[in-house]
């Protein structure tokens, strides 16, 4: 059964097409991340699912029911906003209960859900505070509780962690994931942060310029990027995408550099590059020591190659050395930037 089905969704603002014929499925009870750079239309898609924006064309189905023109409150969705959208004059308790009061849920039921939600996110003793007296993480928890008490099958999240510091962000990532699994929520999560996407998602929908670039599990996106954009968006540092006619296979393992075709690109992840006795000659431009590993910025002709080397290699800027990689680690893209089948052998 399908949680949410988006088909041929379009959003047109005057002369800008923010969302351009987007289709994907969100499996029920799973966490789907809409990932992309800012301005790629991911938030607009989320807002159209919520019903806060009208779709210019296309359909949105939730649990098989066409909700494209449905009122937002009758779609069975709850939403966490980037700014949390807490009512500043209401206490935490009133903020959490706001939706239940609107929907005239019986008071006993309200109290029960409130207690459950507050316990689940650890807000128990903060219920009488105003949002202004809460930390960023606590506000985030209030926003999450609102989602929990709403008891809606679908939960939409619009960059919920972008206002938090790095440590808290990692913590909240785990909590959101745990919550999603515990409540078996169908969750659509918008972010521009690839770490959030990789670590949280069951499925990633990668967007670029209002179009779907690739859909798949995080490992599919990482290991089999369909385009050079996908290859460059995921990974820290991203995949090296090199012009093939600049490379020569001399000294490399067989198949590591396939025969050059005009416009073709070769992709290689930085962690798959190793320093070798013979191979591609490069000059070290800079080194970034990270502790467990070192990121080298290498130069070969006009190309810049990033390499992640385990530990602390004995190189300094200006050194010349050779690098190599295995034949089964390469990705080949044609002149349009689209992946060529599986790596050439």
């Amino acid at each position: 059964m399908t949680g949410i089905r988006i088909s041929n969704l379009v959003k047109q603002w005057d002369d800008v097409r923010a969302v351009d014929d987007v289709s994907f499925d969100v499996p029920q009870g799973r966490l789907t991340v809409l990932l992309g750079p800012s301005g790629c239309g991911k938030s607009t898609i989320l807002r159209m699912i919520a019903g806060l924006e009208d779709a210019s064309a296309g359909e949105i189905l939730i649990d098989g029911r066409d909700v494209t023109r449905e009122d937002p409150s009758r779609r069975g969705v709850s939403m966490v906003f980037q700014s949390y959208a807490l009512f500043p004059h209401l206490s935490v308790r009133e903020n959490i209960l706001f939706g239940l009061k609107v929907r005239r849920v019986p008071v006993a039921e309200q109290e029960k859900r409130l207690a459950e939600a507050a316990h689940m996110v650890g807000l128990g003793d903060l219920l009488d505070r105003k949002p202004a007296n809460l930390s960023g993480g606590q506000r985030q928890r209030v926003a999450l509780s609102r989602t929990i008490v709403a008891n809606q099958p679908v939960c939409l999240m619009d960059e919920p962690l972008s206002n938090l510091d790095a440590k808290l962000r990692a913590e909240m990532r785990d909590e959101i994931c745990a919550l999603q699994r515990k409540l078996a929520l169908t969750m659509v999560y918008v972010t521009h942060d690839q770490i959030e996407a990789m670590s949280m998602a069951d499925q990633v929908v990668l967007l670029k310029d209002g179009q779907v670039e690739q859909t798949g599990t995080p490992s599919e996106l990482y290991e089999m990027p369909r385009t050079t954009f996908a290859a460059g968006f995921l990974g820290m540092p991203p995949m090296n995408v090199l012009r093939m006619d600049q490379l020569s296979g001399a000294g490399m393992p067989k198949g590591a550099v396939p025969k050059a075709e005009p416009g073709c690109m070769l992709g290689i992840r930085p962690e798959h590059i190793r320093i070798a006795g013979k191979g591609l000659p490069v000059e070290v431009a800079s080194t970034d020591y990270m502790g467990a590993e070192t990121v080298l910025r290498l130069r070969h002709a006009d190309e810049v190659v990033m390499a992640r080397i385990h530990g602390r290699p004995q190189v300094v800027a200006g050194d010349r050395l050779n690098i190599a990689w295995a034949a089964d680690e390469i990705h080949v893209f044609d002149e349009t930037g689209t992946r060529r089948g599986s790596p050439d052998t």
Binding site: L52, D71, P72, S73, V77, M79, S83, V102
Partner: peptide, 27 residues
């Protein structure tokens, strides 16, 4: 008043009058 407040209320099905009475007017 941030527009998200109105959107959050709308998702819960609050009428415009309810939103005005409980949120806008107090603010």
């Amino acid at each position: 008043i941030p527009p998200e407040l109105g959107e959050a209320a709308k998702l819960e099905g609050a009428s415009r009058w309810y939103y005005f009475r409980r949120v806008v007017f107090p603010l």
